[in-house]
Amino acid sequence: MNYVPSEFESGRIALNRLRPVPTLSKASTEFEDIEREQGDDQCLLIIDARTLERECLATTLKANGLSMGAIAVGSIEEWQRKKDTHRPVGAVLLNIAGRRAEDASLSEEIATITAELAPAPVVILGDGDDLNQTLKMLQCGARGFIPTSVGIEVCVEALALAVAGGTFILAGNSFSPSAAETASIDMSQNQQRPKELTRIFTLRQAEVVQALRKGKANKIIAYELNLRESTVKVHIRNIMKKLKATNRTEVAYKLNDMFQSDAR
């Protein structure tokens, strides 16, 4: 309800001289529409049979820094019916909740989604962090597994890693993989740590170095190594001092050069 000043009440200014003025709420809405039109040309496709969960997840991810729009559907079939009216898919987040990899229908669903939406990476969100389950999902074509126990910011970073070409697997203390299983996740972990690392860095710094070489963000490094993010930043600063680097890009360049020279 708009307030009418006393001049109008007294009749000193005719009401028919008033002109409509756009309200702030309308202007804000128009700005948001323009912003959406000029936004990213790809979207994150969230697949979850539960309506409330998928809609809440889409809203929360976007509110916490997701770099693309989010579209939530109940199944790949629903997406196939709607895909012509939405942006191309840049990544897929399949929420399996408590379903297990032994479920043949789940393995088939992951393989179908991977084939249908390639080259967009498919990342699994599910309960638990059993490594054997994760490996089976990767074998079906998934590009990462995010446990529901992680924070939303880690989830956003994990999706960004998958979009950049990486694979997110939580390296938590609850994992107890065999040597063969570890090798199947990441071949680089099956190689001996370059001699230069153990000569220059502490054991913890060497672990951070390995993560930096894979392009992992501080939040993910902190979660995987069971550290505070502030502690990770301290390790990175010390690594930069030892390498005489001024930024992370220079750190990555010098580390890659170190690894190559060590392999000769």
Results as ranks from 00 to 15, higher is better:
164 A>F: 02
154 V>S: 10
51 T>R: 14
33 D>T: 11
189 Q>A: 15
99 R>P: 00
203 L>Q: 13
240 M>Y: 01
101 A>R: 05
118 A>F: 04
133 Q>K: 03
167 T>Y: 01
223 Y>L: 13
201 F>V: 05
107 S>H: 02
232 V>F: 03
127 D>M: 10
53 E>I: 12
1 M>R: 06
24 L>G: 06
120 A>C: 07
135 L>Q: 04
218 N>S: 10
21 V>R: 13
119 P>D: 04
73 V>F: 02
137 M>D: 01
237 R>M: 09
219 K>I: 12
17 R>S: 13
11 G>N: 05
243 L>H: 03
27 A>W: 06
160 A>S: 14
226 N>K: 11
150 V>A: 05
244 K>H: 10
189 Q>E: 14
4 V>E: 11
21 V>K: 11
106 L>M: 14
38 Q>A: 14
208 V>E: 02
99 R>T: 08
97 A>G: 10
212 L>T: 04
245 A>H: 08
185 I>M: 14
151 G>Q: 08
31 F>E: 14
56 C>T: 12
234 V>I: 15
111 A>E: 06
156 V>K: 00
246 T>S: 13
98 G>F: 04
18 L>F: 03
192 Q>D: 14
78 E>I: 06
30 E>Q: 13
28 S>N: 12
181 E>W: 01
25 S>A: 15
93 L>T: 04
259 F>R: 10
222 A>D: 01
234 V>E: 12
100 R>V: 10
244 K>T: 08
251 V>W: 06
200 I>A: 06
179 A>F: 11
2 N>L: 08
262 D>M: 06
236 I>N: 03
152 I>Q: 03
49 A>W: 05
39 G>D: 12
176 S>W: 03
119 P>S: 06
128 G>R: 09
173 N>F: 04
253 Y>M: 11
223 Y>H: 13
112 T>L: 01
228 R>H: 13
170 L>T: 03
19 R>L: 08
